[in-house]
């Protein structure tokens, strides 16, 4: 922090990207057209990627852009276009007044509960003392790769089995029944 304006600059952009993420998430939930909703969700994910980079998780930010916005959302949009759902259908997509009221109440209650939980003093046995993060040697990716391939190697291998099962399941489910 050799520049006196850097903390202010950082804070400003943190709040800016946070507001972009929040606003586009609200727009995403309220859009009628699935394509517009998907585009706003992509906007949320881009803002979150910027926040990841600002929180010193550069690799996760890159993966967010590549995997979420580049792969998962493209698959969503592909299905929307495959099923020709671009225009709103005859039955209303958003639930009626009571459904919206109940959902809004549940959402506000959830946020209030999480905020109260953040403020409340925790039992000391539940609090993990912050560790001193050692300075990363070998770049950003090495800091993630070391625990992934040492402590969590089993989980990593199981993930590959999960992906294999998902690929086969998707092919079996989406295949036409009469296709030989």
């Amino acid at each position: 922090m050799n520049n006196a304006f850097l903390p202010l600059f950082y804070t400003f952009h943190f709040y800016l990207f946070g507001l972009i993420a929040l606003a586009s998430a609200v727009l995403f939930v309220t859009r009628k057209s699935p394509v517009a909703a998907a585009m706003w969700l992509v906007c949320t994910m881009f803002a979150l990627a910027a926040l990841y980079v600002m929180l010193d998780a550069q690799f996760v930010g890159v993966m967010q852009v590549l995997v979420y916005t580049g792969a998962i959302m493209v698959v969503f949009l592909f299905v929307v276009m495959l099923l020709n759902l671009g225009q709103p259908g005859d039955i209303s997509d958003i639930r009626g007044k009571w459904g919206r009221l109940v959902a809004g109440f549940i959402g506000i209650a959830l946020v209030a509960e999480l905020m109260a939980l953040a403020k409340s003093p925790l039992d000391l046995r539940l609090v993990v003392p912050p560790v001193v993060v050692p300075p990363q040697t070998g770049g950003v990716i090495a800091g993630i790769a070391a625990p992934m391939f040492k402590e969590y190697l089993l989980a990593f291998e199981l993930t590959s089995i999960l992906l294999l099962a998902a690929i086969m399941g998707a092919v079996v489910l989406a295949k036409k029944k009469d296709a030989r």
């Binding site: 609200v26 939930v29 759902l85 209303s92 639930r95 959402g107 999480l114």
Partner: peptide
Amino acid sequence: ALSAALFAIGVVGVLTRRNAII
């Protein structure tokens, strides 16, 4: 706080929308 708010927006979306993809 942002994470909590985004999660709550997701919950509200699941409860209010009828389109399975959304």
